[in-house]
Nucleic acid binder design. Structure first.
Length: 885
RNA sequence: AGGCUCGUAGCUCAGGGGGAGAGCACUACCUUGACACGGUAGGGGUCAGCGGUUCAAAUCCGCUCGAGCCUACCA
């Protein structure tokens, strides 16, 4: 519930303190609702301000949020919230993808449960079923994005099959066709017999598989030894239409100009010479040529005008052309039978194990069949060229930069893209064939053939590869090809965040399409992140049982913990190792923040605070924590500029936990409790606590939006919610080297005192007398420590503190340039649990190494003077320390 | 076959030419007035190996070994 009363008085405004226990589920949904209702996700603010625009990588519309999505979307949301707080007009466009093959397969499976088949149902009815499925199952993932806290602009939600986006697809197809960049042709393509469709090269996953390579002898009239060919797929020989040799290979020269006889079939095969197809060094030097079932053979067949004989059909069964004996057999059955025949005829010369890179369908794992068919292709080289140039010019920048090389490598050897799919769910290809066989490609359904006027038109039955529409996403979401206000205002976008596994599928194609259709690269930065793995780097899989469901994790630990864990592990270029225990660790961090806030709020309620810190004399601890706060702010912004989510998160973690909580909160207690300081000091401390916590909440908000907003509400009476607060940039005038050095020394001295107790088996409350030598190497720090006497005494639980150079037979040491001596007034010093001799050895070792450097004339001459000076000081300190020990 | 990335504490990883870091795990002590999802103190590493450049190498270069990934039409 948003606060109602305006400007409450300090006495009443914090009536509601934070609950004792931190329960993220109690407020996450409430805050998302408030942000959404208040329109915080829409671009707002100064119309002159720079924009920051992202489009979401659209997930499958019927999919569920998995941890990989959660990772990418978390990074995007961090950027969106950060930029928004920095005053950018920020827009993050959400949407979903129709995911052609994937969705169709799911629905087909559903049908199968009912004993139905899509073909039996018919195209219309089937598509109807898919839409029904989409309505039932769809958009769950969108609610899941809400749970994660994604600040996307829901008023601009898009789906790749929306009418406007479908229009964009159609326009793109027609324009590419008109430009001569889309063509139809007979080619050997990657065919999935199970899915019943062609797929692109990228959708084939190569897997090294143990197979067999057989050597088979073909008869060659006039050559007594015949020709021995090697093959891993004997069943395809039924479709051989030639043998090929290398023109410069003496081994096979005797076959030149001859004809061979195809075993089993008896067909006459010319021996052709093809230096491209044949590698002299491999196998027997003779290659069987099967133009209908191998892409290379097909190319060779084109060069030599060979016949194509299709012996394997689209269902991976042998065709009639394979001969009566084999027709109807599955390809692998046919292989066995063919081998048996060859064996019987004594033609199998050898059979040896052979590892081959077997292509499998990315969707279903079925072995891909090279299949000769008529398909639509994008002629890609002319599109790739400007896309390469754009990256070379730096118009598009990959982060981490190493991906640039991968991009260039792939783009420079890119093959034409097969875009037709023999599916029903998707964008139908806008090509119409008339009764006379002419093809008309048009943005609106034509009524007559563009070539001959024939009115009997049939639309191409195929649909487009899903990625054909995805490549248009950064501008189709804004209404392209119409020149909409959004397109003008928000295109090109700023940053794209995605995983490396779709760099070629999607990112490269968006760059090509963006440049071709809009003349502009679709984004300037591409942040490429890794994949989420388990804590040992293993892929998550149901069978391994190591899957982390982000929704379950959110239920258990809160969205903030999930987000923070993902962010802090986001090392650039690497996969991220995640385990439930790690998410739990960052819930602990949220809890820590929660408790620090409870403490702070209680203190603020305990008395008045200074209205402003400006011009107020600050004590060292206050100067220190403000310096650290602003140092952290600077660091976080710097790291986010560089997409270093991990470093930014780490800086925040370290600051909040180890400096604010472990450091300043503890230092503030003696003053706040009234044991030390004046009322004025207390007012100052309260103001510093307030300011520091506010800024820390703001800094942390992009990472942990819910808990920070919840605390912010209780802490501040400023209007508006944290999501639109100003992001702290870090003020240089708050940096204070002097205070940082002094407090650092103070903390080191306190640590040494505690360590003195613990290594001598004394309890934590055992009184200790501390003497600090004013003639310490870091003399300037000593006077600061004198100023901090009261604090030092309290933190070190000292029974006495003196500043003197007079040794008293206690235990001496030097830390951070402060020479000190400790002793127990009530207790024998006791034995040091860590042998002094070992410490001495360490110091001696370092003295000799530093000393050696300083005695090296080369070092003195060539090393930068500040390094030499540093070494001198270090040696001095080491010697002092040695004397003390 | 080519290319890329990576070998740093028990685990997972930052760092990157001048004193080896973090988180978790581990050990000891502590129910101290925000927090046991906590506090305090500590143990633990020839920074894969070999060579080179340099006054100085975990860091730059080369090679070797090991791990992972991507691309490729070797029948």
């Amino acid at each position: 519930m948003p606060k109602k009363s305006p400007a409450p008085t300090p006495a009443t405004r914090r009536e509601r303190s934070l609950e004792k226990t931190f329960e993220p589920a109690s407020f996450e949904a409430r805050w998302y609702g408030i942000w959404e209702r208040e329109g915080r996700f829409q671009p707002a603010g100064d119309p002159e301000a720079p924009t920051f625009v992202m489009v979401i990588p659209p997930p499958n519309v019927t999919g569920r949020l998995h941890i990989g999505h959660a990772f990418g979307r978390t990074l995007e949301d961090i950027l969106a919230r950060w930029k928004r707080m920095r005053g950018h007009r920020t827009l993050w466009v959400p949407g979903t993808d129709h995911a052609g093959i994937a969705t169709q397969m799911v629905v087909e499976r559903e049908l199968a449960k009912e004993g139905l088949d899509r073909r039996a149902l018919g195209r219309e009815a089937f598509i109807e079923r898919v839409w029904t499925w989409k309505k039932q199952q769809g958009n769950v993932i969108l609610d899941q994005l809400r749970r994660l806290g994604c600040s996307v602009d829901w008023s601009r939600l898009r789906f790749t099959l929306d009418p406007e986006l479908s229009e964009a697809v159609r326009t793109a197809f027609v324009r590419l066709y008109a430009d001569g960049l889309i063509y139809q042709g007979f080619r050997v393509v990657n065919w999935c017999p199970r899915c019943g469709t062609a797929v692109s090269d990228l959708e084939v996953e190569r897997e090294d598989t143990e197979g067999t390579i057989w050597k088979i002898r073909y008869d060659v009239p006039g050559v007594s030894s015949g020709a021995v060919v090697a093959t891993t797929r004997p069943e395809t020989m039924l479709g051989d239409t030639a043998l090929a040799i290398h023109p410069e290979d003496p081994k096979t020269a005797k076959l030149r100009g001859k004809t061979a006889v195809l075993p089993i079939v008896g067909r006459t095969l010319p021996v052709i010479e093809d230096p491209v197809l044949v590698d002299k060094e491999f196998g027997t030097g003779v290659v069987k040529v099967t133009p209908a079932h191998d892409a290379n053979d097909f190319a060779s067949g084109q060069r030599h005008g060979l016949e194509t004989v299709v012996v394997i059909g689209p269902d991976a069964r042998m065709t009639d052309a394979a001969g009566e004996e084999f027709a109807g057999l599955d390809r692998f059955e046919a292989r066995k039978k063919v081998l048996a025949r060859l064996q019987a005829e004594g033609r199998v010369v050898s059979a040896e194990p052979h590892v081959l890179a077997l292509g499998k369908c990315q969707r279903c794992g079925t072995v891909i069949e090279p299949y000769l068919s008529k398909q639509w292709f994008v002629k890609i080289a002319p599109l790739a060229e400007p896309a390469i140039a754009a990256v070379e010019r730096g118009d598009v920048r990959f982060v981490p930069e190493m991906w640039t090389k991968n991009y260039f490598g792939w783009m420079r050897e890119i093959h034409d893209w097969c875009i037709s799919r023999q599916l029903w769910w998707g964008h139908r290809i806008p090509a119409f064939t008339c009764a006379n066989g002419h093809v008309t490609v048009s943005e609106v359904d034509p009524t007559a053939c563009a070539t001959c006027g024939n009115e009997e038109l049939a639309q191409d039955p195929d649909v487009l590869d899903t990625w054909f529409s995805s490549q248009l996403w950064p501008f189709s979401v804004f209404g392209w090809p119409k020149e909409t206000a959004d397109l003008k205002a928000f295109y090109p976008t700023s940053t794209l965040v995605t995983a490396w596994d779709i760099l070629f599928f999607w990112v490269a194609r968006m760059i090509m399409a963006g440049l071709h259709f809009t003349g502009k690269a679709p984004f300037t930065d591409v942040h490429i992140h890794g994949l989420v793995r388990d804590e040992h780097g293993q892929k998550m899989s149901k069978t391994k049982g190591n899957v982390i469901d982000p929704l379950e994790a959110i239920d258990e630990f809160g969205a903030d913990a999930v987000r923070f864990a993902l962010a802090i592990f986001a090392s650039p270029g690497a996969n991220i190792p995640l385990a439930r225990s790690r998410i739990r660790d960052y819930r602990a961090f949220a809890t820590k923040l929660w408790n620090a806030a409870r403490f702070t709020i209680a203190q603020l309620d305990g008395g008045p605070k200074a209205e402003s810190l400006e011009g107020r004399a600050l004590r060292l601890p206050e100067r220190w924590i403000l310096s650290r706060l602003h140092g952290t702010a600077t660091e976080v912004n710097r790291q986010l500029e560089a997409f270093r989510f991990d470093e930014a998160a780490q800086a925040l973690y370290a600051f909040l936990w180890h400096e604010l909580c472990d450091g300043y909160l503890e230092m503030s207690k003696p003053v706040l409790s009234g044991r030390e300081g004046t009322d004025e000091d207390r007012e100052t401390v309260r103001a510093v606590l307030d300011e520091t916590l506010r800024d820390a909440l703001a800094l942390l908000h992009p990472f942990m939006p819910f808990v920070t907003e919840e605390i912010w509400e209780k802490l501040t009476d400023a209007p508006g919610t944290l999501i639109v607060a100003k992001y702290p940039l870090g003020r240089a005038d708050r940096r204070d080297k002097d205070a940082e050095k002094a407090i650092s020394a103070l903390r080191a001295v306190v640590t040494r005192v505690r360590n003195f107790r613990s290594e001598r088996a004394a309890g934590p409350t055992e009184p200790v007398e501390l003497r600090i030598d004013p003639k310490s190497p870091e003399a300037a720090v000593i006077s600061r420590l004198e100023d901090l006497s009261a604090l030092l005494t309290a933190m070190g639980r000292l029974s006495a503190l003196s500043f003197s150079s007079e040794a008293r037979g206690g235990v001496q040491d030097v830390v951070e340039g402060v020479a000190m001596e400790m002793s127990f007034p009530k207790k024998a010093a006791g034995a040091d649990k860590v042998a002094i001799s070992r410490k001495l050895a360490d110091v001696d070792e370092e003295i000799s190494s530093v000393g050696a450097k300083l005695r090296n004339s080369q070092f003195l001459e060539k090393a930068p003077p500040e390094i030499v000076e540093k070494m001198r000081r270090r040696l001095l300190e080491l010697e002092e320390r040695r004397a003390a020990l």
